[in-house]
Amino acid sequence: MPPRSVAPHHTSALVLFSGGQDSTTCLAQALARYPRVETLGFDYGQRHSVEMTARLNVLREIRERFPAWSPRLGEDHVLDLAVLGKVSETSLTRDKAFEMEASGLPNTFVPGRNLLFLTLAAALAYRRGIQVIVTGVCETDFSGYPDCRDDTMKALQVALSLGMDHRFLIDTPLMWIDKAATWQLAHDVGAASGVADGGKQLVDLIVEHTHTCYLGDREHRHVWGYGCGVCPACELRARGWAGFVAR
């Protein structure tokens, strides 16, 4: 689908950018929509910390492959949230096997992560004079995480706007689409970029340079990218790829 139209007063965006498939797709769409885009990453002691390197590679590749977007891509910010890893007893921040908890949530759920991410993103956006915060949370292909739900995002948008007396828009482009549609969205945004074969270029960039695997595996290369192939993130990404190429 082509990039959505934007209200004239929305001219800047801060993208929560991990270096994974979802946040890269959101970044590409933001660059197609907003004249000024900045990125924000978080280092919270995650086991898949390789994403901190991947995100820099993705930013470099986007600048090189999509020259029309490069002038729009502004400062990259990284915040140290080691405290989140210290208070979280999860398989993303500890050497633990992936399993379901008694709560019905997988132990990949980091309590408060997205709430904290968005609060800090809003504080940064406030200081930088940015109106839109973009995040790749999704209620279609997710593991039941309560902080990925649309209701949570709407409540946060209201709370942050009131608490900072600054009208924020929390944009969630992937909220109602599955992983196959996320691959397709990346293709469509790239195709509309003006770059020759831009759809394939962006998809290839995501395959080769983004990182999603919870175990941080960059040794095993699959048709959909690098990863262990068995963690929940890899399974979801692989299933989405299969649906995308079957279209």
Rank of each mutant, 00 (worst) to 15 (best):
S5Y: 00
P8F: 07
H10R: 12
A13V: 11
L16R: 11
S18G: 09
G19Q: 09
D22L: 14
T24P: 02
L27K: 06
A28I: 12
A28Q: 14
Q29Y: 08
R33T: 06
E38H: 09
T39L: 14
L40I: 06
F42I: 07
Y44N: 04
R47D: 01
S49R: 15
E51M: 13
E61I: 01
I62S: 02
R65T: 15
W69I: 03
S70F: 05
S70K: 12
R72P: 12
L73Q: 09
G74P: 01
D76Q: 08
D76W: 08
V78M: 11
D80K: 15
V83F: 11
L84I: 15
L84W: 03
S88V: 01
S88G: 06
K96P: 01
K96G: 04
K96V: 13
F98Q: 05
E99I: 05
E99F: 02
E101G: 03
A102R: 13
P106F: 04
P111F: 14
G112R: 15
G112L: 12
R113I: 04
L116F: 12
F117W: 06
T119E: 01
L124Y: 05
L124R: 14
A125K: 05
Y126F: 13
R127D: 13
R128V: 04
Q131G: 15
V132L: 11
I133S: 09
F142Y: 07
A155W: 04
L156H: 01
V158R: 10
L160D: 03
S161D: 03
G163F: 04
G163L: 03
M164H: 10
D165Q: 13
R167K: 11
L169R: 15
L169W: 13
T172F: 06
T172M: 10
P173D: 10
L174G: 00
M175C: 09
M175L: 14
T182C: 11
W183Y: 13
W183Q: 13
L185C: 07
A186Q: 04
H187M: 01
G190I: 07
A191L: 05
A192C: 05
S193K: 07
A196E: 12
D197S: 09
G198Q: 07
Q201D: 07
V203I: 11
V203C: 10
E208P: 08
H209G: 06
C213G: 09
L215R: 15
G216T: 02
G216Q: 08
D217E: 10
R218M: 10
V223G: 00
G225E: 03
G227K: 02
G229N: 08
G229A: 07
L236T: 14
A238V: 04
F244G: 11
A246M: 05
A246Y: 00
R247E: 09
R247V: 06
